[in-house]
């Protein structure tokens, strides 16, 4: 059998953490962009578009991420579309994140009193001007804590990508534990690494919140 030193375990976990970070960034950026586009489409207020996006949100909120990843990788292949784990993970994580973010942000925009829209109307602002100058700056402040809370969830959710062959932090830990039979050491380190990834995000969100409110 192989003998892992503590350093071997930590070194391999750190290497695997690169995947966790990369997948998280893909989810943040892809999901953020798509989520924002969906938000604008929804604010436009077309009845059909609105209903389609609501259905989209329900589908991705109502099914487990594990299943979405599985279907994106194996399901598309069954339909004759060859996918690489990369494409499947990027696709599934982007769709999943965008569905949650667009719903979170819609709620933030909806919490802005109607009077603000009407006041902007009375100044003859166009739709994009209303969003840019009146509604979004106010909604942004409200959106920071729920958005960051969700992003921290996504970081931990990337562990599910191991089902389509990504050797990220959690999967690497499983593999090492199976070779070392020291689950408590390995999973203890993994918990610590996840904390080191998630804590700075939460901390930064607190700072951002204070900064945004200082301007009031």
């Amino acid at each position: 059998m192989v003998d892992f030193t503590l350093w071997d375990i930590l070194r391999n976990l750190l290497l695997a953490a690169r995947w966790t970070i990369t997948l998280s960034i893909v989810a943040f950026v892809g999901g953020g962009l798509v989520g924002l586009a969906l938000l604008f489409a929804r604010l436009r207020g077309h009845a059909v578009g609105d209903r389609l996006i609501a259905a989209y949100v329900q589908v991705f909120q109502g099914t487990p991420l594990l299943m979405q990843l599985f279907l994106a990788y194996f399901g598309l292949a069954l339909l004759g579309m060859p996918t690489t784990p990369w494409i499947a993970a990027a696709l599934a994580l982007t769709l999943y994140t965008s569905a949650y973010l667009t719903e979170i942000w819609r709620g933030c925009v909806a919490s802005i009193p109607k009077g603000q829209w009407e006041a902007a109307d009375s100044l003859a602002m166009s739709f994009s001007e209303k969003l840019r100058h009146v509604v979004l700056p106010q909604a942004l402040k409200i959106s920071v804590p729920p958005t960051v809370g969700f992003l921290v969830q996504v970081v931990k959710g990337t562990a599910l990508a191991s089902v389509i062959g990504f050797i990220e932090l959690t999967k690497a830990a499983t593999m090492i534990t199976n070779a070392t039979f020291r689950p408590f050491t390995v999973y203890g380190m993994v918990a610590l690494l996840y904390f080191c990834l998630c804590f700075p995000i939460s901390w930064w969100s607190h700072r951002l919140e204070r900064k945004l409110h200082a301007g009031r």
Binding site: M1, V2, F4, T5, I167, A172, M175, N178, A179
Partner: peptide, 14 residues
């Protein structure tokens, strides 16, 4: 497999 010694498992280089 990578989770089933001695049929399939990882060394220190993963």
């Amino acid at each position: 497999p990578t989770d089933f010694p001695p049929y399939g498992f990882v060394g220190t280089d993963m």
